[in-house]
Design a protein around this nucleic acid. Structure first.
Lengths: 334, 334
DNA sequence: GTGAAAGCGCTAACAA
DNA sequence: TTGTTAGCGCTTTCAC
């Protein structure tokens, strides 16, 4: 990489002249400016980002800590973050907590040393079960803003972007009830995390309101989801509706139903939290609760960048933005 | 963030004393060292990463440029990269090229300004179709090592990690032939990129060797994959085998077959490039060609870090490592 | 219109 | 054993 120093030497001018010329300062004479620019161009000069960061005490970089990049929803949010960040001239540096509290802390620590101007994160499962929030508070106290999305800690003062999980399943369940379904099961692989709990509650409320019996299938890590759902159908032949809290369960529920000679949507109606691409993995296509992951990511980035650039505004006026889900009807419901 | 300066002031010693003490230099007396460390601890001091980077002219950061983070294979590789990088004390900064040449160039440019010590990347579709490689060469010439994975440019001198795409489909097709399948179709959503072409050739060779007729279904962006596959089955009732080049097509091929009252694997045998989690999306589970994405990522990181840390070794001895795929038999084949 | 100098936070060669 | 100084690459104030 060429530096200002080298350019200055070659042009027989001072470093500051070069710097000013490149920054279009009107202190510098036109001809000098042009000469400098020409040479810089020819060397393909670009200012060293690290030096700039040190000097200006800002990195134009956002730290993103997500629990699991193999989760389609989360990687879609990441995509949204990246795109929005880029628009504003920011890059993102990613840590994957792998649902571990320790790795989450490490990420915060590692990037908190001046590497980033702020964080966007979704909380690890372990952090949620242990209910730890001190590391977030410490980071914020250190002057680094945090924006949380999806899985958030309500006791931490910061901007948040969440989904209307409770209402989403409540409404989805009611939709099935309106189809005259009376034996609706709720399937979840995410019963441990906050959003999973909310979704289960939404389902429960809708079912109980109608005097129906709730039936919940929780799939643990390491379980064979197909097998569990098979057993479920076997034991409960009356099932005529499925609400799935995660993207795979809905798809499997549809594909497995046919093994029991049950037609979707005639005999069983299925709806699940998922994305368009995954909804394609079942025939008929899964009716989905869309979470608008990219939008969530974009909003999170927007919020964070605003915080960063509004500078040392006394941290306050924190917003919690709810991105409403949309029910996209495909052919797995009537 | 506390700085050395502040610690020095509070302790009434010089900045360098503090620095040395914290770095366990034996130049510093034991008591001073302890005093310094105690205070640093109490302030939760950690050296500013940016200053360190500037000083040492290395960032301990890897730039990763991937075409599409929503692709399960690619995000899995990213996961592998991140984990391996972390092990070695590196963080990763991600750019998503979105299959665009322009964005790929931008990423290289943006991070090439001192932000990273090297790159790991998989080439964008547009870059492959236009066959542009100058930006890679320029980056390498600039002193930043590149490791390419999966979609690589053979004309660029650098380390590469690839998959045995040709052999994978060749062997998979032969497996189907050994099952006495005589009407095997190849389905691909990725016919434009290098690996997609290799996979198609592997299939072709196996089929032609047996004097069978090749049949290829190419699904374009924006196409309804389900509909295309449905039409395929309708027009070609003799199909008794499917080799899928991408993860979704195999799953859909299985789920759709049942709509034609064709049993998998009895009537149709299906195998596809995919991952364990996606193979679950069909009943029966898809027999998959596993690419060991995480391992690819880990190897790529390992290669790059070695290059970075072996310093200015005259760039040479470039390795191309082939990570062999594994055929994991599930119930969609005999 | 141009240049010298300070300083961002850190390390390390050298001086005391 | 501790401190002074220079320097990584850059911007910016102030002097000429």
């Amino acid at each position: 990489m060429v530096t200002l120093k080298q350019l200055a030497k070659e042009l027989n001018v001072s470093i500051s002249t070069v710097s000013k010329a490149l920054n279009n300062s009107d202190e510098i004479g036109k001809d000098t400016r042009l000469r400098v620019k020409a040479l810089a161009q020819s060397y393909n000069y670009t200012p060293n980002k690290v030096a700039l960061s040190l000097k200006q005490n800002k990195t134009k970089t956002i730290g993103v800590i997500i629990p699991n990049i193999l989760n389609h929803f989360l990687s879609k949010v990441l995509f949204g973050i990246e795109r929005e960040a880029n628009k504003h001239g920011y890059t993102i540096i990613t840590c994957i907590s792998n649902e571990s509290l320790e790795k989450e802390k490490e990420g915060l620590q590692l990037l908190g040393n001046g590497s980033v101007d702020g964080f966007i994160l979704s909380i690890a499962e372990e952090t949620q079960t242990k209910n730890e929030i001190e590391h977030f508070k410490a980071t914020i106290a250190q002057g680094l803003p945090i924006v949380m999305f999806d899985r958030v800690a309500h006791d931490v003062q910061c901007d948040k972007i969440i989904v209307d999980d409770f209402e989403a399943t409540f409404n989805a369940t009611k939709t099935l009830i309106a189809e005259q379904r009376r034996h609706i099961v709720f399937i979840s692989k995410i019963d441990k995390i906050s959003v999973g709990k909310l979704r289960e509650r939404g389902y429960n409320k809708a079912v109980l309101e109608q005097g129906l019996e709730p039936l919940v299938l929780r799939i643990k890590k390491g379980d064979d989801a197909q097998e569990k759902i098979k057993q479920l159908y076997k034991k409960n032949p009356a099932i005529d509706g499925v609400v799935a809290a995660d993207s795979a369960s809905g798809v499997i529920a549809i594909n497995m139903a046919r093994n029991f000679k049950r037609k979707v949507p005639q005999d069983i109606s299925v709806v699940g939290f998922s994305s368009k691409s995954v909804s394609n993995h079942s025939v008929p296509k899964l009716t989905i609760i869309r979470q608008h992951a990219k939008k969530i990511g974009a909003k999170a980035a927007e919020f964070l960048i605003k915080r960063i650039e509004d500078g040392a505004v006394p941290a306050q006026n924190y917003t919690t933005k709810i991105i409403k889900t949309t029910l996209v009807k495909n052919k797995s419901t009537l």
